[in-house]
């Protein structure tokens, strides 16, 4: 599998989540994702970027365009040096929030992605990686 393009964006403040959506949208458009596919990955990115700001003290997003034979996809890596997630299963549960949200961001982002991976531990920050492949409904 090749990474045909890669860019890193800093996400420190809530106002920068808009920027994340623009950048991810652009990546999805460049791969000719359908409108539904674009909306899914952009929405997932919006959730994870906001979590990074709200709970992780801000972090970096790496946007990668993937090419695997004829398959094309977008990989997003969200990385922060915040407090980490003590209980990942619990955080993924719908309705669970330690803030004032709906508690649907993590689970929602997972359902909107084809691949989803969380690496997190207390005091070691959080890294969440998602992939969406073009044409995977």
């Amino acid at each position: 599998m090749d990474i045909t393009r890669s860019e890193v964006v800093a996400v420190r403040a809530a106002a920068e989540v808009v920027n994340v959506r623009h950048i991810v949208r652009r990546a999805a458009v460049d791969l000719a994702f359908s409108l539904v596919e674009q909306t899914k990955i952009v929405t997932a990115a919006s959730e994870l970027a906001r979590n990074m700001v709200d709970y992780g003290g801000g972090g970096d997003l790496t946007v990668e365009l993937l090419s695997d034979g004829i398959r094309k996809g977008v990989r997003l890596i969200f990385e922060d040096q915040g407090p980490g997630i003590p209980d990942i299963q619990q955080a993924l549960r719908d309705g669970f929030t330690t803030g004032k949200g709906l508690g649907l961001g993590l689970g929602g982002a997972k359902r909107l992605s084809n691949e989803f991976q969380i690496d997190s531990a207390p005091g070691r920050g959080t890294r969440i990686t998602i992939v969406r492949w073009k044409g995977s409904a």
């Binding site: 899914k40 959730e47 909107l112």
Partner: peptide, 12 residues
């Protein structure tokens, strides 16, 4: 349609 689908996936 795309918004309807994402809302469903989010579980809202």
């Amino acid at each position: 349609p795309q918004i309807a689908q994402t809302i469903v996936h989010l579980g809202v």
